[in-house]
């Protein structure tokens, strides 16, 4: 599944200072859909290069990280249960960095 992942608000520093990542996420064997929960695990092991605790807490994002799916706060689409589709744009913004 082709997705665009964007980091902002300082989170890009955790992935070699690259803000926008065009990625192709393989669905797990037998799975038909990809949820945000799956994507977070994928991002954690494929894009985040350092200090993962700044990004994740448990199986979700750390409090203080905003998540937008297609420019819509993921709280409106079910957070971890949000299902993703091809060409979706997922944005992570840290609210905790800087003044």
């Amino acid at each position: 599944m082709k997705l665009t992942i964007e980091f902002g608000g300082g989170l890009e520093l955790l992935c070699d200072s690259v803000k926008i990542h065009k990625v192709n996420v393989e669905l797990k064997n037998g799975e038909k859909k990809l949820t945000m929960k799956d994507l977070l695990a994928w991002v954690g092991s494929n894009l985040i290069k350092e200090r993962p605790e700044m990004f994740m807490k448990g199986d979700s994002v750390r409090p203080g990280v905003l998540v937008l799916v297609n420019d819509c706060d993921w709280e409106l689409s079910g957070q971890l249960d949000t299902t993703l589709e091809d060409e979706d744009v997922v944005v992570f913004i840290s609210t905790l960095h800087g003044g």
Partner: peptide
């Protein structure tokens, strides 16, 4: 803070 960051992003 969330609103400020969302506003700045949009």
């Amino acid at each position: 803070l969330n609103l400020i960051c969302t506003y700045a992003y949009f």
